[in-house]
Design a protein around this nucleic acid. Structure first.
Lengths: 199, 199
DNA sequence: ACCTGAACACCGTTCAAGT
DNA sequence: ACCTGAACACCGTTCAAGT
């Protein structure tokens, strides 16, 4: 369908790009959620999937989620929508399929794998939405600076623990924190038993 | 300031509620992000904090994040905004402080604690935004049903792993999955070493 | 039958004008 | 100085009317 309309994907923007009124889009799509769902699935078509049986399955999972996040990164408004969706397109299902395969290869019990994939994708999407928007909404002088300042100011006697870890809150590159976050989550998913009896 | 305006908190809604024009709000607040930040902090003022030295620190963390999520749950549009923010109000900092204290009590290394708290709050906020919106956008017949149908249909030969875990994807109550998710993440944060040299 | 112009009901933000 | 009416530049969605 398309590949150029960056940044904020709205009904009206898309309509004018197609030289028509916004009403015309409703012939092909029922609402904006569906539009964003379709757009997401088209983007995921070109997501590079790992070769089967390649190397460390944990690294594969983190790498794949990194690629997913990177893909969404260019479309912040789309990422924000996807957060509120349960995507159901074929390429999204294929992504779930591949992730499930990797978790199975790692010997993760089925319930943990099923719940875990959901969790991993939720965090990946949230990360894309957050980062994309932050970049969009201006230079470095955004909320970040504001929070940094507030933390430095508050981290006196009232907030001893905050004072202790103060600087660690802001260390690491985005990439380092991303890799650590998903490694940690993956570890937890692997080792934390899901409830067996579910009353 | 206020406590009644539920659901979608917009500048204009708030303005009419205060019997004035939308422009007047800009005397007290620079933009909507700041407004939502202030609103969040006011909500967090009544967040029940755990008594110091009470029981299992892991359970305390999960419980506290549950209360946080529950608080945001009633204000979906606020939750969605907070996702794109770096909140810096005193009550949010206090929440970070308490979480850091619990992680320290659990012997979590500082960098992991600092990065971990960020991660826990990100996931909690995302969860609130997602759930709140889903409830808001109609009955059960939303994306959920659509995805469920798509999964059942697709889980044939093309998607073997999906077929294998099919039903597990939709098991568990929201509460059960919430508790498992945060327990798993907390386990990962506790046991996964953060990078030491950060070049 | 298929498409769409124009309207409806909203948004956040700005700024000139009023007190 | 402090506030705000009215305007600007957008939104998603609907529906009567046109081809």
């Amino acid at each position: 369908m398309r590949a150029e309309g960056l940044e904020r994907v709205t009904m009206r923007r898309l309509a004018t790009e197609l030289d028509t009124g916004p009403a015309s889009l409703y012939v092909y799509v029922e609402n904006m959620a569906e539009l964003h769902g379709a757009l997401l699935d088209e983007l995921l078509a070109s997501l590079p999937l790992p070769a089967p049986d390649a190397g460390d399955w944990r690294a594969e999972v983190v790498g794949l989620l990194g690629a997913y996040t990177e893909t969404l990164h260019a479309y912040p408004s789309l990422a924000r929508s996807v957060m509120l969706l349960r995507p159901a397109g074929p390429h999204y299902l294929r992504l779930i399929e591949v992730l499930l395969g990797l978790l199975e290869a790692g010997g993760v019990p089925v319930r943990q794998a099923a719940w875990g994939v959901d969790l991993l994708l939720q965090l990946a999407t949230a990360t894309a939405a957050e980062h994309g928007t932050r970049k969009e909404s201006g230079d470095d002088t955004g909320h970040d600076r504001h929070q940094t300042a507030a933390v430095h100011e508050a981290a006196g006697e009232q907030y001893p623990h905050l004072a202790r870890v103060r600087d660690e809150l802001f260390t690491g590159t985005g990439r380092q924190r991303f890799r650590w976050a998903f490694t940690a989550l993956l570890d937890g998913i692997t080792t934390t038993p899901a409830p067996i009896d579910m009353d």
